[in-house]
Amino acid sequence: MLITCPYCGPRDVSEFAYQGDGNRTRPDPASTDAEAWSAYVYDRLNPAGIHNEIWQHAGGCRAHLAVVRDTLTHEIKSVRFAREHGAPPHGRRTSGAKA
């Protein structure tokens, strides 16, 4: 599996560290909404298909990347710097939603 880092170009997956589901939106740190925090910590879509993910190019430029990957084929649909925008629009869900 190759991930094309926007800075480094195509690199082997062994250079990257998975940083988790890219669909999550962290509640305001001051929030006491237990349901929102529970959803942030535990709820995952676990889709068979297109998935938004955060990866770090830990063995390269060390940038955090927003990656769209197909979990069935491992095809990488798109990669961009995570800092450039919020989570990718597609697959975004509301907190607490299971699917």
Partner: peptide, 8 residues
């Protein structure tokens, strides 16, 4: 130049 890694 590049950044890369071999066995960490």
């Amino acid at each position: 130049g590049i950044s890369t890694t071999h066995h960490d």
